[in-house]
Design a protein around this nucleic acid. Structure first.
Lengths: 247, 247
DNA sequence: CGGAACATTGACGATAATCAAAGCGAGTGG
DNA sequence: CCACTCGCTTTGATTATCGTCAATGTTCCG
């Protein structure tokens, strides 16, 4: 089985064999770690960034009042490359949500790889685009979808993202290591509310979730509920047209 | 007055004079456009990306039910470079919120600039980092802060971002072209609720806002309310330590 | 002056949070 | 092997933040 991070970058840009070689080189000496461990924190400095090889992790922020918001679920092949710049006050942590295997890649290492090969640079920029677009969709979900739709959306997103990872999905079922507390912290809800909405999804026969295994029974309906894959573009005119925007 | 986009990139990486030259070249022939106009939409294709030179714009998504969520306020110097990849179902639009001047930069143009000069590539990656970190903080705000704190946070963020743009802030006051409807669509609230929380901020003497001009009277308190600039790192152990995470 | 867009206010309703307790299940130690 | 425990899930009762609906006011502009 090949490295999911390298595999990911291959889908994001047309890499040469030499590029793949270089990247594989950067990913050797992986480490294993249990659930609920910190992979990356302030004390790690910013000389390396983590890449998840297997298992799930999350970026999160903790607030004064003890509130916690997960800003990004990290699946195999995901990196914390586009973290806040070193001088930023905002620095997120990376925690494992299940047992994980990960590597730390030196920023210097990837920098010189980028300098040496522009497809790698392009792949990293495209990776950034992807992250950005996921983050945007989270903003939309949390900002404008109710709890039920939001949960449906996240499940759709995970199903979609895992689909790109070989062996992660079998017959619309996949491992789902999140506790309901974690789930709540992704969705911006309370665990209690998550529990209730989860029941609702189960009782509708759309999914089942038992012992950390998510089975989607009715993907089409799940997507309909979530409004997944259908960002609606407003009716309107093209660039620099001075007509008023639609209501 | 120099180009705010080039200026921005200069702060993000150590550019050579030649780099600045190249970038200025890419930014010639700006266009002017009124408020509530589309700067970028599906029909524009993805050959160019817009950069705001003056005025405010926004990236947003529209949902089936008519809901709208702004995912990013774009201030002078902001680009829509890190948009969703061309094959993504998710494509956001860019609308102006005030009269704007902007340029369209060809992706091909910036690509070759990046190929020719690695500091430009680094600057663009750092720009992506910045976007990413703002998006993350939006997720945290919308997910875990109540309406009052959230509004305070956004004002702090804008004050901070505008501070990097020369001439944008005078004595903690700045132009604020958003209607309460726009404001609501950034915050994930209803206009009515925005109105009420705005009153609350005004009556506390912390800000005033009249005729599209925001004046911050008590920045320190605003930041306290928002929890701005204080991402709390959890207590815990360093990398790959197998000790349990704190509760 | 008239109109349209925007802001404000009030009454009411609904979604989600809070508080609290009980149930379940997997791993541990006696 | 069974009781125990700890973490997680489930349920109920209550509260509150925020949304909805609707009307009135205000400002800006042609």
């Amino acid at each position: 089985m090949s490295n999911p991070f390298v595999q990911r970058l291959e889908t994001l840009s047309r890499l040469q064999d030499a590029d793949v070689q270089t990247l594989e080189e950067l990913c050797k000496s992986p480490r294993d770690i249990g659930a609920k461990q910190y992979v990356f924190r302030e004390s790690s400095g910013s000389a390396w960034f983590p890449v998840i090889i297997s298992g799930w992790a999350a970026r999160h922020q903790i607030l004064r009042n003890g509130g916690r918001q997960i800003t990004r679920l990290m699946l195999p092949g995901d990196a914390y490359y586009f973290d806040a710049p070193p001088d930023s006050a905002l620095r997120e942590e990376v925690v494992t949500l299940s047992a994980c295997r990960f590597v730390l890649i030196a920023h210097a290492g990837i920098e010189s790889a980028i300098k040496a090969s522009s497809p790698i640079g392009e792949a990293m920029r495209n990776y950034g685009r992807m992250e950005n677009s996921i983050l945007s969709s989270m903003v939309v979900s949390i900002g404008r979808r109710d709890a039920f739709e939001r949960m449906a959306y996240l499940i759709c997103e995970l199903h979609f993202r895992l689909g790109a990872i070989e062996g992660a999905i079998q017959d619309d079922a996949f491992d789902f290591p999140l506790t309901q507390d974690d789930f709540a912290d992704v969705l911006g809800l309370t665990p209690v509310h998550v529990n209730r909405k989860l029941q609702q999804l189960r009782q509708s026969g759309i999914i089942s979730l038992r012992s950390k295994r998510m089975q989607i029974h009715d993907l089409a309906q799940l997507r309909r509920i979530a409004g997944f894959g259908s960002a609606y573009l407003t009716q309107g005119r093209v660039l620099a047209d001075r007509s008023p925007a639609p209501a």
